[in-house]
Every structure is written in structure tokens, then in C-alpha cells.
Amino acid sequence: MRASINRPPTPDADEDREQKPTLQEVIHIKLIESGEKERLKELLRERLIECGWRDEMHALCRAFARKKGRQNVTVDELVHVITPKGRSSVPDAIKAELLQRIRTFLMNVHVD
């Protein structure tokens, strides 16, 4: 890189080339292109409803809103307060099922 005091560094010719996407980015693209990401999201939604997780989160949100006053609660604040509890309370069986589905997908897809 070449730089001066008055301007930001100018990339060298070697650095101008477009960088390859990371493995994580490639996998994410494959999940979207294949439609598997939407199927996984729908499966997660179904499982969370079946086990009562969704109702539990709904109750926590209502309790927080009542405690703080419905007019004094923002969506961002609610998300900030509820997210840690929500993530930690997802049943291990659901996490394992999703992980297995992702592994199966990765075994069957060619990643360059």
C-alpha cells in the first residue's frame, strides 16, 4: 500500500482484485439459493411452537410490558431484554435437529 499524509492509502494492483468469499459466505449463499434456509426457518418455527417456547416468550414480553408500562416500552428494548432468555431457552433437541439438518445439507452440496 502507498500512503501519504493527506490521503488514505491507495491499494496496490494485487490488492485491487476481488477477494474470494469465505467458506461461511459460500455456505450461506448455497443455503439461500437452494431454499434450504427457508425450510430450516420454517422447521424451527414449527418446533418452537410445538414445545411451547413461543408462548413462553410471548408471556415474558407481556410481563415486561406490564411491569414497565405499555407506553414506555420500545420494540428495541423488548428485543434487548428478551433475546438472551430466548436463545438460552431453546430446547437442546431442537438445536440438535437443526444442526443435523445443516450437516446433511452440507454433505450433499458441493462447496467450491
Rank of each mutant, 00 (worst) to 15 (best):
Q100W: 00
M57Y: 00
A93Y: 02
R62W: 01
T104F: 04
S89D: 08
D14K: 15
F64Y: 13
W53H: 10
K95N: 07
H110N: 13
E36M: 13
L99T: 11
S4F: 06
K67Q: 15
I27Y: 02
L23I: 10
D92W: 02
D14Q: 15
R54P: 02
L40E: 08
I49V: 15
A93C: 01
L44T: 03
A13C: 06
P9D: 03
I27D: 07
G86D: 05
A3G: 13
I49W: 06
E33P: 10
S34F: 04
E15A: 14
C51Q: 09
R47E: 07
S89A: 06
D14A: 15
L23W: 12
L44H: 00
E36D: 08
K95G: 03
T22K: 08
T104V: 10
P21M: 07
S34V: 05
I49E: 07
I49M: 12
G69S: 09
I5L: 11
L78R: 05
T83P: 01
R103Q: 14
C51M: 06
F105I: 06
I32G: 04
D12H: 12
I94C: 00
A93L: 05
L43D: 04
A13Y: 09
E33V: 06
N108R: 00
R54D: 01
I94P: 01
T74I: 11
A63G: 01
T74N: 09
L23Q: 15
T10Y: 02
Q71W: 03
I27G: 07
V26Y: 03
T104A: 05
V111S: 10
V111H: 05
P9K: 14
R7Y: 12
